[in-house]
Measured scan of single mutants.
Amino acid sequence: SSGAIIYTVELKRYGGPLGITISGTEEPFDPIIISSLTKGGLAERTGAIHIGDRILAINSSSLKGKPLSEAIHLLQMAGETVTLKIKKQTD
């Protein structure tokens, strides 16, 4: 049976990049997913974020019904501590 787990990851960026690339579309209900991780970057080092994971919220702002451009804007405005709500498929 296919299921999913949902969890929250807190990234402290200390002025540096998060080390993630996200992808999606401008269709508001398409998923926003992690499309790549910078090798040795902040997100990869947590061990908790993987390519293909879906981002449900950024700093408690839900991405439900929001296009990719809004998600990118939220990441850019997120500040030093970025909290990502992640949904991972478990097959």
Rank of each mutant, 00 (worst) to 15 (best):
D30T: 09
I5Y: 15
G41P: 03
Q76K: 12
T38S: 13
S36T: 11
L84S: 02
T25W: 01
A4F: 15
A57Q: 15
K39F: 04
A4C: 15
T46G: 11
P17I: 04
G47Q: 14
K64I: 10
T38E: 15
S61N: 10
I20Y: 01
P17N: 13
Y7L: 14
G15S: 14
T81V: 04
I6P: 06
P28R: 08
E10S: 08
T38K: 10
L56S: 00
G79V: 06
S60L: 02
D53P: 03
F29I: 09
N59K: 00
D53M: 02
I22M: 08
K39T: 09
T38R: 05
L42K: 05
I32L: 06
E26D: 10
A78R: 06
K39H: 13
G16Y: 07
G24L: 07
M77R: 14
I33W: 15
S23W: 04
R45W: 01
I34P: 00
I6K: 08
I20D: 01
L11I: 13
S69L: 04
L37I: 14
L18N: 04
G3R: 07
L68H: 03
F29Q: 14
G47R: 12
I32H: 05
L42E: 09
N59W: 01
R45E: 12
I33V: 13
I34G: 04
Q76F: 04
P67Q: 09
I20N: 01
E26S: 12
G40D: 12
R13I: 07
F29L: 13
E70S: 13
I55M: 10
I33Q: 06
S69V: 07
L42R: 14
Y7P: 01
A43E: 01
M77I: 15
A57H: 04
G15L: 13
G16K: 11
G52Q: 04
T8V: 08
G19N: 04
Y14R: 15
E44S: 09
I6E: 14
R54Y: 09
H73R: 14
R13H: 11
D30S: 12
G52A: 05
Q76S: 11
L37M: 15
G3I: 11
M77A: 12
I34K: 00
R13E: 01
N59D: 08
T46A: 11
I58M: 01
S35V: 07
T38D: 15
K66A: 08
T38H: 11
K39S: 10
I22F: 08
P31S: 13
G15Y: 05
G52W: 03
A78Y: 03
G65N: 11
A57F: 04
S2K: 14
Q76Y: 09
S35P: 01
L68M: 09
G16S: 12
G40R: 04
S69I: 05
P28G: 07
K64E: 09
G24R: 07
S61D: 10
L11V: 12
G19K: 02
S36G: 12
A43G: 06
Y14V: 15
P67E: 04
Y7T: 15
H73L: 12
P17D: 08
G40C: 03
F29Y: 15
L37N: 02
L11F: 09
P17S: 13
T25M: 08
N59Y: 04
A43F: 00
G15K: 13
A4T: 14
I20T: 03
I22H: 00
S60K: 13
E70T: 11
A43W: 02
I58E: 01
G24Y: 09
R13V: 09
E70L: 11
A57L: 01
E70K: 10
I33M: 13
S2L: 12
S23R: 06
M77N: 10
S1M: 14
E27D: 12
G41W: 02
A78Q: 09
L68D: 02
L37A: 02
G52N: 06
G65V: 01
L37V: 14
L63W: 09
L18M: 09
R54T: 12
T21L: 05
T46E: 09
P28T: 07
Y14Q: 14
G47W: 01
S2Q: 09
E10D: 08
I34C: 10
A78S: 11
V9G: 02
K66W: 01
S23Q: 13
G15A: 10
G47V: 00
S36H: 11
L56P: 01
S35F: 04
G19F: 01
P28L: 11
T46D: 05
L42Q: 14
L56M: 08
I33F: 10
P17K: 09
R13S: 12
L42H: 11
G65W: 05
V9L: 08
G15V: 03
I58Q: 00
I6T: 09
D91N: 15
G3F: 10
T25N: 07
I33T: 13
L18H: 00
K66P: 01
P17E: 15
E26N: 11
K12T: 07
L63S: 09
N59I: 02
I58N: 02
